[in-house]
Simulated scan of single mutants.
Amino acid sequence: MSSEPTQEVCQIDLTKLNLQQLQQLKNEFESELNVFQDSLQTLKIAKTKFDGSKEALEQINETWTDKEILVPLTGSMYVKGVVNNIDKFIIDIGTGYYVEKDITASKDYFKRKVDYVQEQMDKIDMLGRQKSKVLNGVIDVIEMKIAALQAQAQQAAAAK
């Protein structure tokens, strides 16, 4: 038995919906696509931060002991500091929690975070592409119905 949640797929014949219903459906899909885009942007920012932390760890070596560095207090304010231990790092794991790890565990942590965020980005991208295809189908049906209504109006005008 699978632990994955199952989703029941419901198919709707778009040609049986009226223009108002189609427009409402189109708006819902556009709204969902906007949420997906916002989520992807947020995940890209998180991935960049994790990548940056991982790359910073790659730069550290034994020659850094007693090295003077700048420690960021904010995005634009720094204080001088001295590296006195390159074997232990304090890592922000979210929501105000910090963990002390050695360099190997720290690198592993950031690699796992980057991989996880990328996996989530791939899932959202796939869902976005699926929603986009359905949205294009809805738009095609809307255009088809509008063209049919215009043709009908032209026939009615010609018949008078």
Rank of each mutant, 00 (worst) to 15 (best):
G81T: 11
T104P: 00
Q20T: 12
A157V: 01
D108F: 09
K113E: 15
R129C: 02
T6F: 02
Q154S: 01
V134G: 00
T95Y: 14
A158I: 08
V117D: 00
I90T: 14
V35M: 14
G52W: 08
V82E: 06
F29K: 10
A156C: 00
G94C: 08
R129G: 00
S53K: 09
G52I: 03
V114A: 14
L25G: 00
Q118H: 10
Q7T: 06
I86Y: 01
M144Q: 15
G81F: 10
G52S: 03
L40F: 09
I60G: 06
K47G: 04
D122Q: 08
P5M: 05
Q154E: 10
V114T: 13
G96L: 05
R129T: 06
T95N: 11
I93R: 07
Q23P: 00
S53A: 11
Q152K: 15
V117K: 10
R112T: 11
E100D: 11
D115L: 04
A153V: 03
T65W: 01
C10E: 11
I86N: 08
A105H: 11
F50G: 01
D102N: 09
Q23I: 08
M144S: 14
Q120S: 06
I124T: 15
N84G: 02
G52A: 05
D51K: 03
A156H: 02
M77H: 04
L33A: 09
T95I: 12
L17D: 04
K54N: 12
E62G: 01
L25P: 00
D108M: 08
I12Q: 05
L43C: 05
F29S: 06
R129V: 07
I139R: 02
V141H: 04
Y97V: 15
Q59G: 06
L127V: 03
N85Q: 05
D108E: 15
D122Y: 07
A156N: 03
S106V: 09
G81C: 13
Q23H: 13
M144E: 14
L33E: 02
